[in-house]
Design a protein around this nucleic acid. Structure first.
Lengths: 244, 244
DNA sequence: GCTTGTTAAATGTCTGACAAATGATCCTTT
DNA sequence: AAAGGATCATTTGTCAGACATTTAACAAGC
């Protein structure tokens, strides 16, 4: 009555859950090889397709990797930040685009976290971060730029800011908050004047970082938040009632 | 040359990727039913097991749900915060426990984001949040408490703090940062004196929130970060070189 | 009109098989 | 004896077909 009572779900989901628990609890360590699919099928007393479905679930979360051949098999994967980034962005994007949250809430969360990066970034920013930011600011001032390209550049600027904090955990978390908002930002029409405003604030941020002036960066971010919120008024979130 | 060139990966991974892209891009909307497995197999010109493996990958990310029976099938899932929480916590836990990051970095990120919640929480905290926090503070002062239970209470306290900010996006992001650190915190031995210190700082935070005093909360969080970092000196991160 | 049995459609699972990749082994050749 | 290549065994990837189970819709009977 320990594990098979609470979930009347699929066999593959239960098996995947057991293996996942073993990984999270450390009973299976990085690069350790799982038993072959045939052995797992025998151990769990299910067929090989069922085991495979369970392994695919784990592979989708980058918890394992598989390799063909004589010495192949399923190995516990060292979770890399690059892998986690993608999942984080996908999840965040969907959480926002499915209208579970309003533009205002998403914006608030994003800028709150960016401000959290400001002191660290002001202390640790390298030349390469400043260079990335300057490049994007210049791009944002180009006349013929499409709204979409402007958005992409905006995202790139803010990612440079976050990366300047020199903390991969923050970069990981912020990746979702910043990139996940891109579809919402893409719904905004950026006039020449609003672009000018945003680029000016971006320049203030870059200048502040260059001077190691955390307060200036924080203030610029706050003003940028206010301005983005104002622009976001255009984005009338539709529906918003279907919360099954 | 649009989609089938870049990845010499499994068929099931490619199919899952195509469906995921369709969901993220909005070509498949919430609660829409996918074709049956047999139809998908026919469309993608693969067998049903392969289609099933692809669907399980998506199900592992809560992108779809499946339902048996006459009107059953695979449906695009409205991504709920509860679902996302679990994945976020699992991913964060593994990112930390696999020694990709040091205790210091994880600690820094966590408290930076918690401080980001402070102003919002000071403005919006409800009685229920304060009550949750007081309860946990009392629990933390009980004499016979195990280190593990103390840790769990610490996590509960901080989650109450984050929830008080009234922003589900922040709660989602912080869930990973706070709960993901639990295994690391569990390696710390909490003496009676350190528990007293932590409970005192927690009380300062709760008091600050009650007075709507964001600065007091921020200061207490900063001191708590310093203190936690000091306790974390015990936690000598082993290995740390295997970054192949 | 309501209940009940039947049917059809869909997923869940199993069996068995073959293809492809890959390291290990053995044999041949130099 | 050493080097090189052919063969083999193991393992995952894929397929075909079948049966079980669940579920909603429909039809039959009271």
């Amino acid at each position: 009555m320990s594990k098979s009572k609470e979930s009347p779900t699929d066999l593959s989901a239960r098996i995947a859950g057991q293996i996942r628990d073993a990984i999270v609890a450390g009973r299976l360590i990085v690069d350790e090889r799982l038993p072959s699919e045939a052995e797992l099928a025998s151990q769990f007393d299910v067929s090989r397709p069922t085991v495979r479905e369970a392994l695919k679930r784990l592979a989708a979360q980058s918890l394992i990797r598989t390799q063909r051949g004589a010495t192949g098999g399923a190995f516990v994967n060292r979770l890399r930040f690059e892998d986690a980034y993608g999942q984080q962005i996908t999840t965040s994007t969907l959480l926002l685009s499915m209208n579970e949250v309003s533009f205002d809430i998403a914006c608030e969360a994003r800028f709150a976290m960016e401000r959290a990066c400001a002191p660290l970034a002001a202390r640790r920013r390298g030349k390469e971060h400043l260079a990335r930011m300057r490049t994007e600011i210049q791009r944002q001032q180009q006349p013929g730029l499409s709204d979409e390209a402007f958005c992409a550049s905006d995202v790139a600027f803010h990612r440079a800011l976050v990366d300047a904090a020199g903390n991969p955990v923050l970069s990981y978390q912020l990746a979702g908050a910043v990139e996940g908002m891109q579809p919402l930002m893409n719904m905004i029409t950026f006039t020449a004047r609003s672009r000018e405003n945003i680029a000016r604030l971006h320049a203030e941020i870059a200048d502040g970082l260059e001077r190691h002036d955390a307060d200036a960066v924080t203030d610029a971010l706050s003003e940028l938040e206010r301005y983005t919120l104002q622009l976001g008024q255009q984005v009338i979130v539709p529906g918003k009632t279907q919360n099954g």
